[in-house]
Simulated assay, not measured.
Amino acid sequence: MNLPKIIADLVTAQNEFDSLAYANCFSETAVVFDEGKTHTGKADIQEWIEDSNKKYKSVMKPLSIVHEGKTSVLSAECSGTFPGSPVILKFHFDIEDGLIQTLKVTG
């Protein structure tokens, strides 16, 4: 599967539990929507993913990607220490200038 570089970098960072590398995939003003919460800016995103990594130890296995206008939707099998693992989630990315501007995670 041919993922855009920034999405491939994010998957690698997630699978290595590297919250700094994960946050560096986002712009300074990026917004993440996940589990009913909004996280704004790189520092907030890094704090969120670091907490998530500690709680869930989630790893991603990309299954497919579809490009819809400026949005890329990655379907990935996510497994970890959370109830119902593994699950297939959709990651909706808006990318500008090589960085993620928005990420919305849906079931």
Score class of each variant (00 low, 15 high):
S58N: 07
S58K: 05
G41S: 11
V66Q: 02
K61M: 12
G36T: 12
T40Q: 14
Q14F: 08
E35W: 12
V73Q: 03
L63I: 08
I49Y: 00
Q46T: 10
P62E: 08
E68D: 06
S64M: 07
T12W: 08
D9C: 04
H67W: 00
A43P: 01
S64D: 14
T38M: 13
K61V: 13
F26V: 05
W48A: 03
S27I: 09
V73K: 09
L63T: 01
T29H: 12
H39C: 06
D9V: 04
T29K: 11
I7T: 01
K54S: 05
Y56Q: 08
V32K: 02
V32L: 07
K57W: 10
G69C: 02
I65L: 15
E68K: 06
S27N: 12
S27H: 11
V32A: 04
N15H: 05
K55Y: 06
V11Q: 00
K42N: 15
G41D: 11
D34N: 14
A30T: 04
K37V: 05
I7P: 01
G69L: 02
E28G: 06
E35G: 10
D9A: 07
K54E: 08
V11R: 01
S52K: 05
K42F: 09
H39N: 09
K42A: 14
V59I: 10
I6R: 00
S27V: 10
W48P: 00
K5E: 11
A23S: 15
C25W: 02
I6G: 01
A21W: 02
S72M: 04
E28R: 11
A8P: 01
E16N: 15
T40C: 09
A23P: 10
E35M: 13
S19Y: 14
L20T: 14
D51K: 14
D34Y: 06
K57V: 03
